[in-house]
Computed example of a mutant assay.
Amino acid sequence: MSEEVVAGRHPVLEAVRSGRTIHKIIYSADSQGIGPVLAEARAAGIVTQQVDKRKLDQAAVGVRHQGIVAMVAERAYAELDDLFAAAEASGEPPLFVLLDEIEDPHNLGSILRTVDCAGAHGVIVPKRRSAGLTATVAKTSAGAIEHVPVVRVTNLAQTIDELKERGVWIAGADGSAPQDVYAADMKIPLGIVIGNEGHGLGRLVRERCDFLVKVPMFGRINSLNASVAASLLLYEAVRQRRAAAPAAAGRGKNG
């Protein structure tokens, strides 16, 4: 059976709360703040084992584990239908994030955290040249990886075509876009595409976008970190949707 590690207090706690299959949790006795995590794990019937710090370091190589590591079943990727189901359950138009070859696991983890906080309905990544759902991603996401559905597709451009057929508009983030994100309609069923950290959107993906948007820049550096750009675009969509909600509710009451 394939197994992964989840390291750190918040990621392990969210893994426990999500109901994900956890084979065992190992921890160090002198670690601070893990008592509540262990209590919830034991209440859920999960095996916990005290070990020395060296074993924790070996289990979570390169990840700051904070004295606790969970051995979990390999995380299953979602399907596109899962994202649409999440949007339908929320009663809101779909709001997805598509990542065009985001390779830094810290960027992916940060984006997952923002997607969860903003109430977006899921993330779509390509199988090739893209960060996967690793322990580093889980740690950076602060546990959001347990709650955000992630779809892994063979061809992102073809997936965009499918999304458009299902009524989703595609907005590409691009520094040379003719309009600021604040001037774009982000209330519609929407997929926001964030490009690679180095070269941005790929040609085929860019050509399939219904429109391009940018975050206005006023300093000497003309680009933002991918996860920061995703956050700004997502929260502009949140702002517009919240502003539109009272008007929509009012129309419903008046028939």
Rank of each mutant, 00 (worst) to 15 (best):
G219P: 00
T21R: 15
M186I: 07
S28N: 09
R239S: 11
I160A: 07
A247H: 04
D52Y: 08
A229F: 03
V37L: 05
I124G: 02
V153P: 02
A229M: 08
R166C: 08
W169Y: 09
L224V: 00
L13A: 15
D104G: 03
A85N: 06
D82H: 15
K24S: 12
G172F: 11
L156H: 12
A44D: 01
G45L: 03
P36R: 07
D116V: 05
A78S: 13
L108E: 10
P246E: 13
P94L: 15
L112A: 14
V72D: 01
E3N: 14
N155A: 12
E14S: 12
G67D: 04
T159N: 02
A248W: 04
N225E: 03
I102L: 14
D161L: 15
L56A: 07
V63G: 10
I22Q: 03
L112W: 08
A43V: 00
E14P: 00
I68C: 01
A249Q: 14
V72S: 01
S90N: 04
I46W: 00
G191L: 14
G255A: 15
V5K: 06
R241F: 07
R251T: 13
V215K: 09
R9V: 15
S223W: 01
Q179W: 10
K214Y: 04
A86N: 08
E146F: 02
R75I: 03
A41E: 00
G62D: 07
E197K: 05
G198A: 13
D30L: 05
E3I: 13
T159P: 00
Q58G: 03
A248N: 04
G255E: 15
R129N: 09
R166G: 05
V69E: 02
R113I: 11
E88V: 08
G202R: 12
R152L: 08
A43T: 01
T154Q: 13
G252F: 14
Y77P: 03
A85Y: 09
V215Q: 06
V115M: 07
Q49F: 00
A142V: 14
Q32V: 07
Q240G: 06
R242S: 13
Y182G: 02
G195H: 15
G202T: 05
G109M: 06
T140S: 13
N155W: 06
K127C: 07
V168L: 11
P105K: 06
K139D: 00
G143W: 00
I26P: 01
P126K: 14
R128Y: 08
S141C: 06
V148H: 03
D81V: 06
E236H: 06
V181S: 02
G33L: 10
G219H: 07
V238D: 01
E88S: 14
V72G: 00
R166H: 06
H147E: 06
S28V: 07
A73L: 05
H199I: 09
D52I: 10
V69N: 00
F218I: 11
I221P: 02
K164P: 08
V61W: 11
L13Y: 03
G109P: 07
